[in-house]
Amino acid sequence: MLMRTLFLAIAMLFSLISDQSLAATSAEQIQQATRAFVQEWADQRAKEGLKIAFEVGHIDSRLSLADCDKPLDAEFAGSPLETTRPSVLVSCSGKRPWRMYVSLSLEVHGPALVASRALARGERLSEQLVTTQSVQLNASHKGALFNPEDVNGMMMRRPVSAGTMITPDLLEAPDAVERGDHVIIIARSKTFSIRSRGKALANASVGEQVLVENLSSARTVKGTVVAPGRVEIPM
């Protein structure tokens, strides 16, 4: 009788250990958590007028991570609007924490600015030269632009054909001063400033440095373009 009781106790112990070792988070659970997270994100983007199509990447069915005693967390590892293959970080914050990345195939379609006709390098944009069309926003990792006012007055860095999505890398600010322009030189300290007239010796945009000749002293100084026709020099 004692041997039988001992045998049953050992059997129950091994059974408990076996059950605990088999308790795991399956690949299907991770896929479900990923799918639910992305679907919720897609539903929110739909309210903004975007159309989302996605497919969760394959997860090896043999994967076995520790059982999680809390709901699984999920978040994008980067911006989903800048790539067609974003990753979702799925993690467990329970007693036996773990993290893993799940790949995703994603398409995001929505309205953005495109060229209304072919545009040449150096051409200055106006609101009439762009139009809004539905495009795949995440086809380029360079981002998209949505407001025509944001491109008004900007210059094209390179030529594009009609229908090309306008991205920030295609644009540059026009020169605020050009070589030979007469400019106002502002020598500024914390307590006062002195103004004089000068001549720009090169082209430069706002925020860039440029050499200018002081017309009063004939000295050449370097300053920062702060506005069209204005160059500031710290004292």
Rank of each mutant, 00 (worst) to 15 (best):
P174N: 03
S61M: 02
S21L: 03
Q20V: 12
K222Y: 07
E82Q: 09
D69V: 10
G49D: 01
A42S: 15
L8A: 11
N147A: 11
E172G: 13
A66V: 01
S64F: 12
E75T: 14
Q32M: 07
E149P: 03
L113S: 08
D69Q: 11
R121D: 07
E40P: 04
S64Q: 14
N214S: 09
P80I: 13
Q39C: 01
V221P: 00
K51Q: 10
S193V: 02
K95P: 03
A173I: 13
V90E: 00
I10A: 13
T167F: 01
S216A: 15
A204F: 02
V38R: 11
G223K: 08
M12S: 14
A204G: 02
D150R: 05
P71R: 14
S26A: 01
S61W: 02
P148C: 10
T167D: 03
L201N: 05
A162E: 15
I184L: 07
S61R: 02
S79G: 08
M100W: 08
E82R: 08
H58Q: 14
A118G: 06
D67Q: 05
L13Y: 15
R85H: 01
N138H: 03
K222H: 05
V231G: 03
S217F: 13
V135R: 02
V108T: 00
S79V: 06
R124M: 09
Q32D: 03
K70C: 09
K199F: 00
A33S: 04
V212R: 03
I59E: 15
A227V: 07
M156I: 09
S161R: 12
V221D: 02
A115W: 14
R195M: 13
T220A: 08
R45G: 04
H58M: 08
R62M: 01
P111E: 14
S18W: 02
V88Q: 01
G57L: 10
D169W: 06
M3C: 00
D150A: 14
K47M: 14
V114W: 09
I194M: 02
G122Q: 11
A202G: 14
L65F: 11
D60A: 04
A139K: 09
M100T: 14
A187N: 00
L6R: 01
P97I: 02
A9W: 09
V130F: 13
V177Q: 14
D73I: 11
N138I: 09
S21N: 02
E178T: 11
E232H: 15
Q31H: 14
S134R: 08
V135H: 01
N147L: 07
A27D: 02
F7I: 13
H109V: 13
R179W: 10
A36V: 15
D19I: 15
S161N: 08
E208N: 04
I52L: 05
V206I: 05
V56M: 04
S134F: 03
A53P: 01
T167Q: 06
L170R: 07
E82D: 07
S134D: 05
